[in-house]
């Protein structure tokens, strides 16, 4: 039981896919302009991650190891297609804003990384929890980056103006702002981790 809980919780901080493993930076940098986009992207990727981990773990003993990567890609791509169509149907606004980054979840290295390093070697339940934890960690990290960028770069959060008379620092909603924010947050994570270890 304790082991299962650890599989779930490790993705949130200890092995956070963005701040610690530093995977999946392309969506993290490109989509974190606003908190709304970040939440949408995080949930979409989490959905794909949980189900692909589940299926891949289920077929891990059937698929020959030589052709495992193409199989993983096919499974991941089908879930991405489901997410893409669902998003286009129920939230066309968000789908339009995320644009190409939803189909690009197929090649997101977090998802393929978890499939390869965890789901293809572990039983179904741990894989499911691993996917859930990693997805949550990804969503959380993306949201933190996006919240900082949205507040500083446009003075808003989820579209609501926070302070009157604030002059937004445009750089924060532009690509350099994403790199700066992410770099500082990774640095902070390292400081916290070294403090915990001591």
């Amino acid at each position: 039981m304790k082991g299962l809980l650890r599989e779930f919780s490790k993705g949130i901080f200890q092995e956070n896919p963005i701040f610690v493993i530093v995977l999946g930076l392309c969506p993290a940098l490109a989509v974190s302009v606003s908190l709304e986009n970040a939440l949408g992207m995080g949930l979409a990727a989490s959905f794909v991650l949980v189900f692909s981990n589940f299926i891949i773990s289920g077929i891990r003993n059937i698929v020959p190891s030589r052709i495992r990567i193409p199989c993983f890609i096919v499974i991941i791509a089908s879930f991405v297609t489901i997410v893409e169509l669902l998003m286009a149907a129920f939230s066309p606004q968000l789908a339009k804003q995320l644009g190409i980054f939803v189909p690009l979840i197929v090649v997101n290295c977090i998802i393929l990384g978890r499939a390869e390093s965890f789901a293809s070697r572990n039983k179904i339940l741990p894989s499911l929890l691993d996917g859930l934890g990693m997805g949550l960690g990804f969503t959380l990290a993306l949201s933190v980056v996006a919240a900082i960028r949205e507040v500083l770069g446009s003075g808003k959060i989820l579209g609501f103006t926070l302070f009157k008379g604030y002059l937004p620092a445009t750089i924060m909603v532009l690509p350099p702002g994403a790199l700066l924010t992410l770099g500082i947050l990774i640095g902070l994570t390292n400081i916290i981790k070294s403090k915990i270890r001591r």
Binding site: L167, A169, T170, I171, M172, L174, P176
Partner: peptide, 10 residues
């Protein structure tokens, strides 16, 4: 450069 990109107007 940071200021120029952050607050170009000023």
């Amino acid at each position: 450069a940071f200021l120029l990109i952050a607050w170009p107007k000023y």
